[in-house]
Design a protein around this nucleic acid. Structure first.
Length: 410
RNA sequence: GGGGGGAUGCCCGAGCGGUCAAAGGGAGCAGACUGUAAAUCUGCCGGCUGAUGCCUACAGAGGUUCAAACCCUCUUCCCCCCA
């Protein structure tokens, strides 16, 4: 990377662009100072965000801050995508956290590759540096490490929201967990970060980084906090474990459908945090929705199109919308269906057939689905799970609203 | 080190010898309504079985009993109080 002086956009322009969608910037003043200095010196800001090495399935929740990283890049700054492999390799012996399995070096490297594939859907590969925090954490000696821990008090650690909650409600907190934030904070020292990005749930950690940098005699980073994206269920933050996420690699139809399933109250947030639609256009949408003149669904369709276009293509978005309309609005059977080939050596009884093709999790589940009226053949509800299938002609099989197949003879 | 409390199905949580596959809630699935929105209503919600039934389950291992999630012993883990 060339160390030549770069030309950056003026301060106001940068600030306006960056502030869009941000939950909190600690502090805005510091950011302005840093940007001003960078314009003057021609040196880009170092902007970092840390990522968990064990969860390489990125979703729109991750995209919120990654998109912000991208904006920093567009302004000419340097982005460091930091993979927290060290903590991942240590694991969490408390055993409480299932999301933190112990990883091997190979796991980490493999996950890093997956990360790249996903992250570069948003970030500019040329302007991104990927780093691992094992680079420096493996170097610690006990003295150095103890010195690090001495910079912080227990009382202060307990200020962290989840620690204090867990402490008060009597849930365990392992020492290791207690130390993680400190290690993470040190990452900012090692990278000389000017700005660290994260979700608002990371506030404490990012501020700790800012503080520790000060202890190590460098200027404290700006904590750049993005709002948490609420998941498609409209309740919890988007996360894989809640199953309320829209993944980078979701198929266009899925992606579109999931976007359509969000509550109306989230439409504006989603536009702001997950699309490139301009702030102005979003304001108009917000007004229109609150005015009540327009069916919010129409905006949601636009949102769904925007999202699919971003991760696939405009053609995919159109196709997904068409599919959605026939399937769910008109309640018709789409022309293109996944096909399942039947043959005479397959079970004829519907329940066994579903089980044979793994269309149901268990026969009990299938039985319930049928008894609940969720299975249709050629649009006719199946009432008896012992019903025999006739494979001589192709037919359409529906399982609930979402799964529709065409069964064709061999 | 001493004392006390606790571990129940995806989650929370009741049960404290038989009527327990285990109340209730949440999540989830399906149906009605609908805009795959919100709200509401209904059914289901460990596995196998056409059904009767069988199997696996209440931290783990043993034991008492005709019978144990519930009683006893040991083990593991967690929390609190005292030091």
């Amino acid at each position: 990377m060339s160390q030549q002086k770069r030309a950056f956009p003026p301060l106001n322009e940068q600030m306006d662009y960056l502030k869009r969608g941000a939950a909190e910037i600690i502090t805005e003043d510091d950011l302005e100072k840093k940007i001003t200095a960078s314009i003057k010196s021609g040196k880009p800001l170092i902007v970092k965000q840390g990522f968990d090495p064990s969860a390489p399935d990125l979703h729109l929740g991750h995209a919120v801050s990654i998109r912000k990283l991208r904006q920093f890049q567009e302004l000419g700054h340097e982005v460091i995508f930091l993979i927290g492999d060290f903590t991942g390799m240590v694991g969490d012996p408390s055993g409480k956290s299932k999301t933190r399995p112990r990883l091997t070096k190979e796991d980490v490297l493999r996950n890093a590759e997956t990360y790249k594939q996903q992250v570069f859907k948003i970030l500019d590969p040329e302007a991104t540096r990927i780093r691992f925090n094992s680079e420096w954490h493996e170097q610690w000696d006990v003295y150095g490490f103890l010195d690090l821990t001495s910079r912080l008090t227990v009382a202060r650690m307990l200020e962290r929201d989840d620690f204090s909650k867990r402490y008060q409600s009597g849930e365990p907190i392992s020492m290791l967990e207690f130390l993680y934030p400190l290690l993470q904070a040190y990452d900012s020292v090692a990278l000389k970060a000017d700005v660290e990005l994260g979700g608002v749930d990371q506030t404490f950690n990012l501020l700790l980084g800012r503080r520790i940098q000060g202890d190590f005699g460098t200027e404290g980073q700006v904590a750049f906090l993005m709002p948490l994206l609420v998941g498609t269920d409209g309740t919890a933050k988007m996360s894989k474990s809640y199953g309320n996420y829209i993944g980078f690699f979701d198929q266009p139809e899925d992606m579109y459908g999931k976007a359509m399933s969000i509550p109306d109250s989230l439409i504006v947030d989603y536009f702001t945090l997950t699309t490139d639609v301009s702030a102005e256009a979003i304001r108009e949408i917000a007004d229109a929705i609150s005015g009540g003149a327009v069916n919010p669904m129409d905006f949601k369709k636009r949102l769904a199109r925007e999202i699919v276009t971003l991760y696939h293509s405009i053609e995919d978005a159109e196709r997904a919308e068409e599919d959605f309309t026939t399937r769910f609005s008109k309640r018709e059977i789409p022309d293109e269906l996944p096909e399942i080939v039947s043959s005479s050596d397959q079970p004829k009884m519907i329940l066994d057939f579903l089980s044979h093709h793994k269309l149901i999790g268990s026969k009990g589940e299938g039985r319930r689905l049928i008894q609940g009226g969720g299975v249709k053949i050629e649009g006719e509800k199946v009432s008896d799970f012992r019903q025999e299938l006739n494979f001589s002609e192709p037919f359409v099989l529906q399982l609930g609203k979402r799964k529709i197949y065409r069964i064709v003879p061999k």
